[in-house]
Amino acid sequence: MAVHLTRLDPTGADREALVVFLTTEEFPFHVRRRIERADAERGIDEGAWRDDEHDSFWIDSDEHDRVGVLRLEDLEDPVPLFDLRIAGEHRGKGLGVEALRAATDHVFRTLPEVTRFEGQTREDNTAMRRVFRRAGWVKEAHYREGWPVPGGEPLASVAYGVLRRDWESGTTTPVPWDDEPA
């Protein structure tokens, strides 16, 4: 199923829809599973969804509008990050892979100074880890106990990335894991 990104107007026409999306969905693998209305509104007002460092998009599919939201972060850095949230009713249908591919295409087509694009997920988010691999991203790090879990022990944060040159050529540059001198 194909997806496309529709730029969000978080402080204008899309504000209430974004607040509703963020506050009515549960995001089990994010640091905060649930977002309270006041927190969502504060984030929007403080520029977390659009400013020099952030931009955001609705994720629309061929069959449904607004199946999720994508937020780009650290846009003034040559290595931006992203936050991807798919609505619960649309998870498990392959939209994550298509959304990540669309995000990657958007970043490399519109931000010529960007050399690589990266993201992280919890070690137990096996679905997102498959999304990264299926979208052509490479595991680059495993940060032990790097992801806080409210009420529980921290989990590992697993980082993935894609290089512009790999995106352009359709290849994958492997990570040199065994590069330490003996």
Rank of each mutant, 00 (worst) to 15 (best):
M1A: 14
A2Q: 14
A2S: 14
V3C: 09
H4M: 11
H4C: 02
L5R: 00
T6W: 00
T6Q: 12
P10Y: 08
P10N: 13
T11G: 09
T11Q: 15
E16H: 05
A17M: 06
A17E: 10
V19D: 09
V19G: 03
V19K: 03
V20R: 15
L22A: 10
T23I: 12
E26I: 13
P28R: 09
H30G: 06
H30R: 13
V31D: 10
R32V: 08
R32S: 14
R32H: 14
R33I: 06
R33F: 07
R34I: 06
E36I: 02
R37I: 03
A38E: 15
D39Y: 04
R42D: 13
I44L: 08
D45P: 01
G47N: 04
D52G: 13
E53R: 12
D55F: 00
W58H: 07
I59F: 05
D60N: 13
S61N: 04
D62Q: 12
V67C: 09
L70G: 03
L70M: 10
R71H: 00
E76Q: 15
E76V: 02
D77K: 04
D77C: 03
P78H: 10
P78N: 03
V79P: 00
D83H: 12
G88P: 00
G88T: 14
E89A: 15
H90M: 06
R91L: 11
K93D: 07
E98G: 01
A99C: 08
A99E: 01
L100V: 09
A102S: 10
A102L: 00
A102R: 03
A103R: 01
A103L: 02
A103V: 06
A103I: 02
D105F: 00
H106N: 00
V107I: 10
V107H: 06
F108D: 05
T110G: 00
P112A: 03
T115M: 04
R116I: 02
E123M: 08
D124N: 12
D124T: 11
A127Y: 08
R130N: 14
R130L: 06
R133G: 09
R134F: 04
R134I: 01
A135N: 08
G136W: 09
A141M: 11
H142C: 08
G146E: 08
G146Q: 10
G151V: 07
G151Y: 11
E153Y: 00
P154M: 07
L155Q: 10
A156T: 09
A156P: 01
S157G: 15
S157Q: 11
G161D: 04
V162T: 08
L163N: 02
W167E: 04
W167R: 10
T171M: 01
T173W: 06
P174H: 12
P174A: 13
P174D: 13
V175S: 05
V175D: 02
P176V: 11
W177M: 13
D179G: 01
D179H: 13
E180F: 15
P181I: 07
A182I: 12
A182S: 14
A182T: 14
A182E: 15
